[in-house]
Write a protein that binds this DNA or RNA. Sequence first.
DNA 1: GCGTCCAGGTCTACC
DNA 2: GGTAGACCTGGACGC
Length: 301
Amino acid sequence: MSRLIIRVPRGFDFWRTVLSHGWAILPPFECDRRTRTLRRVFRLAGGRLVTASLVGSAGAVQIGTGRAALAPAERADLRTHVRTCLRLDEDFAGFHAAARRHPQYRWIAASGSGRLLRAPTLYEDVVKMICTTNCAWSLTEVVVGKLVARFGEDAGGGRRAFPDPHAVAQSSEQILRSTCSTGYRAPYLLELSRRVAGGELDLEALRTSAAPVDEVFDALRSIKGVGPYAAGNLLKLLGRYDHLGLDSWVRAQYSRLYARGRAVKDAAIERRYASLGRWRGLFFWLEMTRSWHDEKFRGSA
DNA sequence: GCGTCCAGGTCTACC
DNA sequence: GGTAGACCTGGACGC
């Protein structure tokens, strides 16, 4: 059995990162709460597909690949993918220092919160984010599951990779609608996949871009189907936390927390977090989901 | 079982 | 710049 170990930054909490938002239960991610294992198919350099199981331990993340023996270059590639997904190379010291300056946010630093799980590629994150728009979470699960089942390459053992943009690009609106329940999002997903597959849109470059956040936001907004909500939340997966990424769920949560259930204008929510600077989107998300996390972690920290 | 209504972001047309 | 309506699906509800 092949096993790799990755050392993690001090204060890193594997399970809190896994459950930081809904990505962990969207295929090809699989989340086993009983064993606290995150599993998925990774596409390594050279195109080989490997199913890896990730488990947190003291100061490290252990990666198991079953019987698959990996070449040195493949091991290095897998490590890179895992580091990307778990945000291990992102520095949260500034964020936690900022959290400690606010009594109501000290729990964030104390719990090591802040890392939001992401996919190995921004293409996968964008596809999934489009699939969260204008529908219930249950439909998001259905659509992503069908996309992976229909277009994801078979990795053996009943598992599939996330679809390569070329595979989706060769499809059609009609097929996406009829086999993946994408509805009116079909042309958006098709156009996105064709632009990425054709090299016109270099999404991965945005992950390392030093451009001002507004430029990156505009680049994301140029993708059909990506509006303010989707772009704001994709920015968080790029390590830019300047936007709140408001949707109906967080609006409702905010109104429950601060307005006794009454509706609150977006501008008022924005004003409340404006003083938190470039981290405001992350403060906002963690605050809105705090009770959600407490339920998930109760008695199991 | 069937029909109707509604919620959920984004796009487009229009003012 | 702001607003209204369309887009599509699944769930809730009434019959």
